[in-house]
């Protein structure tokens, strides 16, 4: 029993970090905007880590899942605005739709791309966000390039007061919950056969196959899980916080870059990594935008190269190595 429980100790620092973030945000005036951004980065990193970190595969089109998640929520809100009395139920349906759409897209992409190895996978994904964006624009899906604005529908469904609270507060709390949920799922995977299979295939895919691991199956599990969390992040952080969606914005490769920075900075494949990466990235980006505006990405691109060359295991990876024979070690995963 005790050892069963011990497996979940690493969640403790994760929850404490989120709690501190929340309390700081509530009690320090004028800081909620920053906290909200940090929560977004945490959830984004935690979701992306399930794929990039655990499989070692790079999905350059990852932002597409946030994009379709945003469209999922947008579709639910605009489509159901006319039905009286659904209220918050619409939001629930929106999340379900976001997850379904992200899952379907990840299955379509995964069916092709996950049969390919390493570099070829990356090549196949690099156009997913652009491809999907141009499909929406080109074939005039969801209003094509004019996008969708659904503030009015959101007001209609939730009432003006609640809709306002959702945009400024509850959406962020939902992002927080999604981030924690992604961390819990990460840990569950790590403690299950899925985690062992993913570690094996990340380290040596051929050897993993010979050991009896159906590598494609496990890659798809990680891919779909990661994509559905991304869909939820898109639905909460983009659709609910700012109730409009334009294809060039939600399929912008910039967000994939940020996700990569966060995961690699913190430590790919670790539980705490994305959180640590997100906090470092978010806070330093915030201050850089004040003191060195315009230089943020320049600096982070350099940082990423340095990390990949010198510390490929990231901050948490380095810490993990240092605490190996220490009581702290069971808290760091």
């Amino acid at each position: 029993m005790n050892s069963k429980l011990k497996k979940y100790y690493p969640l403790l620092p994760v929850c404490v970090a989120y709690l501190i973030l929340f309390l700081v945000g509530r009690n320090v005036t004028g800081i909620w905007q920053l906290v909200s951004t940090l929560l977004f980065y945490c959830a984004l990193g935690q979701a992306f880590n399930i794929f990039l970190g655990m499989t070692g595969y790079v999905d350059f089109g990852y932002v597409a899942f946030l994009g379709v998640g945003t469209y999922g929520m947008a579709t639910a809100v605009t489509g159901l605005a006319g039905y009286e009395g659904l209220g918050v139920g619409v939001i629930v349906i929106g999340f379900a739709l976001a997850v379904i759409m992200a899952t379907l897209l990840s299955m379509a992409v995964g069916a092709v791309a996950l049969r390919l190895r390493g570099a070829y996978f990356a090549i196949a994904t690099i156009g997913v966000n652009e491809g999907f964006r141009y499909l929406i624009e080109g074939a005039n899906l969801w209003n094509g390039s004019s996008g969708m604005i659904f503030t009015a529908e959101l007001n209609q469904i939730l009432g003006r007061d609640l809709a306002g609270r959702v945009m400024t507060f509850w959406a962020d709390i939902l992002v927080l919950i999604i981030g924690v949920a992604a961390a819990v799922v990460t840990l569950l995977y790590m403690n299950s056969k899925i985690g062992y299979a993913l570690t094996a295939l990340r380290e040596d895919e051929d050897a993993a196959k010979v050991m009896g691991i159906h590598v494609t199956k496990f890659k798809i599990i990680a891919f779909i899980t990661s994509a559905s969390f991304a869909g939820m992040v898109g639905a909460a952080s983009w659709a609910l916080k700012t109730p409009y969606v334009f294809p060039p914005e939600v399929f912008e490769i910039h967000y994939t870059i940020e996700a990569i920075i966060i995961v690699m900075l913190g430590g790919a494949g670790t539980l705490m990594g994305p959180l640590v990466g997100a906090l470092i990235y978010g806070v330093s980006k915030y201050y850089l935008s004040i003191f060195l505006p315009g230089f943020q990405l320049f600096i982070f691109a350099l940082v990423i190269i340095v990390i990949i060359v010198l510390f490929p295991e990231g901050v948490v990876g380095v810490l993990k190595g240092k605490t190996r024979n220490n009581r702290l070690k069971q808290l760091i995963l």
Partner: peptide, 18 residues
């Protein structure tokens, strides 16, 4: 061809698991 980042115990457990 070990799974380098995993421990010896985890490596061998992978054998049993699959």
């Amino acid at each position: 061809r070990p799974f380098a980042s995993a421990t010896v115990r985890e490596n061998i457990a992978v054998g049993a698991m699959f």
